[in-house]
């Protein structure tokens, strides 16, 4: 359906903006390494099913792309972040990883290693942007491309919400776990979305309150 395709496309766009920004500027300025490490963890733990289940060629290619691009991003960020003297990327990610793992243990589709990892990845994804937003807030201002990247990334899960509503009516299917974490993820972005609309769409400077 249209919402899901649009969501996946905005996810792809966010990754291309990110990689392109790093490569063009040859700098990791304003980009959180920790957020990108969390996304790599999210993709690897969610897509372990690549090894034992097959949905479609689209699904497989996208999963391989997300895993490989997230690892590539980390390598590039590591390479360029050495030169930055004041690198405000100091969010304690253990405060995100540990609760996500506990929530994965509590809410899952079966007490199996693969199901716990899948649930963990959903919870972790919902809060993975926090180091990046934290960094943006600390630095006070940001490059336009960085904000476009964060916007496209947030838009992806936001578009999954109408996708789930559509699927509920069209196919009679829904998943409480995916929807709950998807809504949390969108809420985490809500302040950013509002500021993005106010400042970027109306073409003024950017800062988070």
């Amino acid at each position: 359906n249209i919402f899901r395709i649009a969501g996946d496309l905005s996810h792809l766009v966010s990754i291309f903006i990110l990689i392109n920004t790093i490569n063009v500027k040859k700098s990791a300025q304003g980009i959180s390494l920790k957020t990108n490490i969390l996304y790599a963890v999210v993709f690897v733990t969610r897509y372990v099913d690549l090894l034992y289940s097959y949905t479609s060629l689209y699904n497989t290619l996208m999963k391989i792309f997300f895993i490989s691009s997230s690892i590539y991003t980390i390598v590039m960020l590591k390479k360029y972040s050495k030169n930055i003297q004041q690198y405000n990327d100091d969010f304690k990610i253990e405060y995100l990883i540990a609760p996500s793992f506990v929530l994965g243990l509590i809410f899952n589709h079966g007490f199996k290693f693969s199901e716990i990892l899948w649930s963990f990845s959903l919870w972790l994804e919902s809060v993975s942007i926090l180091p990046q937003l934290f960094m943006l807030q600390k630095s006070g201002e940001s490059q336009l491309l960085t904000t476009h990247y964060i916007f496209a990334l947030g838009l992806y899960r936001a578009l999954y919400i109408p996708n789930w509503i559509y699927r509920y009516f069209a196919e009679g299917r829904f998943d409480k776990l995916a929807i709950t974490t998807g809504i949390i993820q969108t809420l985490v972005y809500s302040d950013f979305f509002y500021v993005y609309y106010q400042k970027v769409i109306k073409n003024i400077g950017f800062s988070l309150p």
Binding site: R4, D8, S53, T55, M62, R173, D175, A178
Partner: peptide
């Protein structure tokens, strides 16, 4: 099933 429906997503 519901599970396979959601896991076809990314």
């Amino acid at each position: 099933s519901i599970l396979s429906a959601i896991k076809d997503e990314l």
